[in-house]
Design a protein around this nucleic acid. Structure first.
Lengths: 345, 345
DNA sequence: CGCCGCTACTACAACGTGAGAATACAAGGT
DNA sequence: ACCTTGTATTCTCACGTTGTAGTAGCGGCG
């Protein structure tokens, strides 16, 4: 196939057609299966395709059809382990159905998110999977182009797009209940955001409140130190604030694993033993959670399933097999109990 | 798909040409600046471009020029923090020069790596940035298509491609020397691979040996437990083996941060205090290293610079501004000293 | 026997762009 | 006046694909 010093030009439909002795369009029909082709012809064409190693020229196809076979995947923070792990699953799920994925990093900036959701991020994208952070309903309605869109995560941005997300309220409630079951009573929560709480913060807080209410415990505002973002340093500094309280918490529910890992570090610096002096639980089940010291109890969404469902929804919209209003898809989760919240007292 | 109320189709060169009263090619010349255009005409065309908000159709341009503006970026393990962090930098660096990046995960499989390096992974890729793991020189020479290629990392695969990598021998030597300076004497190394060591293992081992030799210390083969891969569990099990030795090490140099984090966990499980009973250092400076308990001393490559240089090299080859033999580019590194190796004894 | 309708295929145009050849026009030299 | 030189612009075509329209062949039915 290869010529030394040169490299063979990629075979085109025309080359396949000549080899098989049919017209170009017939080859196209065989390759795409748009129109039924007689079995004998089909086999002959297929043999020619295999022999030449023909691969469709995506650019030409795109120019002709207006489709590219490429979708954008945009996260606010790609290096965050949760997003990186989810990205890998999305890439794999997309590959299984012949779609290639183009990564984007919005930094959570509403303007950047709107650009992406409008398909302006990169030219000729068929659809977008977006994990929004700063975007709101109004902004999303105002987008200049209605590209097929699937949203990941908690934010409810209306019926414009499909949305895949786990039940955050239930996840937060169950992991808090687990702490209660282990005997912890003064349970703080790290992850509230003060002037402008995100949907994540609201829902995980709601679940936490429900669990406390079910147990007949009061909600102490002192145990809700607000954070700026959801990274390790935010968790660490919130933890330090909690440890300065006159009456310290005996457990902390962190709204994601990075906050929990930061909190763990702050607790360690303060000389506290986890879980003996203080229990810590997180949310997301990033790989690191299993290797933290102590290993971290957390809420584990099924990342592979989330990716699978998101790609499937988007594909249905791209191919116009579904054109209705935004759907909500809610895969399950598990609470994974590890060292950081057991062996209490 | 369309904007409510009709939705103007994207303006084409033809539309601009009609508005400006010139030919399509003249507009093309103005837009691309390939041929000088009289100032008066230029201004008139520019005005028409601005008025219509014309943007070139990238797909058509790509079909015509044979370029796609897309490069592939392939890592053996995308969820690994080092690769994820580096990927973000590459995506950012590529965006700055108008290139979009398509992610790939090879799993370290030589066949998959060869496919990628031959540009067969996805159609219409202009070039490839690959971090090889299993690929060897001979295989790389045999690739069927000579697509512009930049390699990341330690493996020396000959002059076929440019290569961007830090000086691993020096990095390993310096971090080992740091342990010696802190007073540690019985220093183990985790990361050697027995039947088939990777370039990474060889070079980091070489640096470790050099540092020991400089200090006049012997190399004890017992202190070199081989590992299968470079993940946390490999580090943990290697550490456990070391701790079963009659004469235990007082420090461990792990060939990457994940190994170190696994080792840290195993040490913790064994009831050892780090760094009082045992120092642990890593390599890569992943974000997690700063938040481990204790925080991890490590060798920090300049990831942003590595990404920048890799993209620049690849771009030069794609645009044929450079067509010579493979270049080697060696950005610097720093040894970042943290808790896991200080406050000794 | 001729026409219809069906299947299986082919011919042709078009998507928007850029390369190169061709043309128009102006100025200057002989 | 004519040719040369050079610059500015236009014309024509091709990139590889797919949609539309069209044709050939064939069996069935009035």
């Amino acid at each position: 196939m290869s010529v030394p010093g040169g490299g063979a030009a990629a075979p085109r439909l025309k080359d396949v057609a000549e080899l098989a002795g049919v017209s170009v369009k017939t080859v196209s029909n065989v390759v795409n299966g748009t129109v039924p082709v007689a079995e004998a012809t089909r086999a002959r064409v297929q043999r020619a395709v295999d022999e030449l190693g023909y691969q469709p020229n995506v650019t030409a196809r795109r120019l002709r059809t207006g489709r590219s076979g490429v979708i954008a995947l945009a996260f606010p923070e790609l290096p965050s382990p949760y997003f990186a792990e989810l990205a890998v699953e999305v890439i794999a799920a997309a590959r299984r159905v012949g779609i290639t994925v183009l990564m984007d990093d919005t930094g959570g900036d509403p303007a950047a998110e709107l650009r992406i959701a409008s398909g302006l991020g990169d030219p000729m994208i068929d659809g977008v999977i977006l994990s929004p952070l700063g975007l709101d309903r109004a902004a999303l309605l105002s987008r200049s182009r209605e590209i097929p869109l699937v949203l990941l995560g908690e934010a409810d941005l209306g019926p414009v797009a499909d949305r895949v997300h786990i039940d955050n309220v239930a996840g937060a409630r169950e992991v808090t209940r687990h702490l209660l079951d282990e005997g912890y009573r003064r349970i703080a929560a790290i992850g509230w955001q003060d002037p402008a709480p995100r949907a994540t913060a609201e829902q995980r807080l709601a679940g936490y409140r429900e669990a406390l209410a079910d147990a007949g415990l009061p909600l102490d505002p002192e145990l809700l130190p607000p954070v700026r973002a959801y990274f390790r340093p935010d968790g660490a500094s919130a933890m330090r604030r909690l440890l300065r309280l006159p009456e310290r918490p005996d457990a902390v529910f962190c709204f994601n694993d990075l906050l929990a890992l930061g909190a763990l570090r702050a607790a360690h610096e303060a000389g506290l033993r986890v879980p003996q002096d203080l229990a810590i639980v997180g949310f997301d089940d990033v790989e690191e959670a299993a290797y933290a010291i102590p290993s971290l109890t957390t809420v584990a969404p099924d990342k592979r399933l989330i990716a699978e469902l998101a790609v499937r929804c988007l594909e249905e919209r791209i191919e116009r097999r579904y054109t209705g209003p935004g759907r909500r898809v809610t895969p399950g989760f598990r609470v994974v109990v590890r060292e950081s919240s057991t062996l209490a007292r």
